[in-house]
Computed example of a mutant assay.
Amino acid sequence: MKVLPFTIPVPHGKTIIVQEEIMPHFYPHLHRHAEVQITWIKTGEGTLLAGNSMHAFKAGEVYVLGANLPHLFKSNPEYFDDGSTLIIEALTVFFDPVGKLAAMFDLPEMKAVRSFFEQWQTGFKIPIEMLSVFSGFIDRIQLSKGALQMSVFIEMLNAMSGLTDIQPLSADSYTHSMTDPEGMRIASVYNYIMHNYGRALTLEEVARQAHLTPNAFCRYFKKHTRVTFTAFVNKVRVNQACKLLVNGNLNNIADVAYNCGFSSITNFNYTFKNITGKAPRDYVNDYVGTVKIKNGIK
């Protein structure tokens, strides 16, 4: 199956596509499609790669991904272990605002909704205080049919267009102008890094994934991602380190550093603070303090 583009199967007579997934892990390849995607993560955790940005995701969250935004819900490594009994569950609504629904989005009454989705091509995460509202919408859309389903769908879009204080998932929409061959080449590189960040990665071996010399690859990667190869690998590693630190799955910070592909504690501490703004130990302490406050523990 091609990594980019990805075709969503559209049932006959449908303009809103509802897809329920219960699988050992999420689809493991970077991809994009013409439809806007609204995904409710019911079970599972991992890393969301959207454009050139990364975000940890977990159960209960809802993400909105703009049309043609390259993305990957990368399940945590333990989901791929031999004998793993872990599963992911997700419920997703897909719709194409310039396909069969174009006439509806052109209505004067839908002007605000259309403008909202044009503004948020880079995608966003539903605020935590609104998760129950929008997971409820998605649930109702799945359970409804015909005109009632369309009514609930429009109600959800209207509520979504009124959201404030949301942050983009991707830094910009540069990927929308990427050709399919370019997208597939970058996707192969992204996938390789996401699957191999836990060990030493050389520029030469990653450049081979793009069939380029190291120097040409560095220029190519920076042009299409707006970040250097080293900066991207460090973001992947620090994102995984954040999850390991707060989950407490490893014995100490050194174990976390080496598990995520860093060659020394000094380099890990420097890189972690440079990306997150905090030292690893401070990051853990702040997280523990936040959890205690939410749980009413003094």
Rank of each mutant, 00 (worst) to 15 (best):
M1D: 12
P5W: 09
F6Q: 00
T7L: 14
P11N: 08
G13A: 05
G13S: 09
T15E: 14
I17W: 04
I17L: 09
I17E: 06
Q19T: 09
E21C: 10
P24D: 08
F26D: 05
H29A: 10
H29G: 03
H31V: 02
A34W: 00
V36D: 07
Q37I: 08
T43C: 06
G46D: 01
T47H: 05
L49K: 02
L49H: 05
A50H: 00
N52S: 12
M54A: 08
K58S: 12
K58R: 14
V62L: 08
Y63E: 05
G66V: 06
G66E: 01
L69W: 01
P70M: 00
L72K: 00
K74D: 04
K74M: 08
S75N: 06
S75T: 04
N76Y: 07
N76R: 10
P77K: 01
G83S: 11
G83W: 07
S84L: 08
S84Q: 04
L86E: 09
E89W: 03
V93S: 08
V93C: 08
F94K: 02
F94M: 00
P97D: 05
G99S: 08
A102C: 12
A102R: 12
A103Q: 14
A103L: 13
L107K: 12
P108T: 10
M110D: 01
M110H: 06
M110Q: 00
V113K: 06
V113Q: 01
F117K: 00
W120R: 06
F124M: 01
L131E: 04
S132V: 11
F137S: 05
D139F: 08
I141S: 02
I141T: 02
S144C: 12
G146D: 08
L148S: 13
V152A: 02
V152Y: 06
E155K: 12
L157I: 07
A159W: 07
S161L: 04
G162C: 10
T164P: 07
D165H: 12
I166K: 02
I166L: 09
P168A: 09
P168Q: 07
D172F: 09
S173D: 13
S173F: 10
T175F: 10
T175Y: 03
H176Q: 15
S177V: 11
T179C: 11
D180Q: 12
P181Y: 03
G183E: 07
R185P: 01
I186L: 11
A187L: 05
N191V: 04
N191E: 03
N196V: 07
Y197H: 02
Y197N: 04
G198Y: 00
R199H: 13
L201H: 00
V206N: 07
V206R: 08
V206M: 03
R208L: 12
R208D: 11
Q209P: 00
H211N: 14
T213L: 11
T225R: 00
V227S: 04
V227I: 13
T230Y: 13
A231Y: 06
A231I: 09
K235H: 13
V236E: 05
N239F: 01
N239G: 10
N239T: 15
Q240H: 13
G248F: 02
N249D: 15
N249L: 14
N252K: 10
I253V: 14
D255I: 11
V256H: 05
Y258A: 00
N259F: 11
N259H: 14
N259T: 14
N259E: 15
G261D: 03
F262V: 05
S263L: 15
S263E: 15
T271E: 02
F272W: 07
K278C: 10
P280V: 02
T290N: 15
V291E: 13
K294L: 15
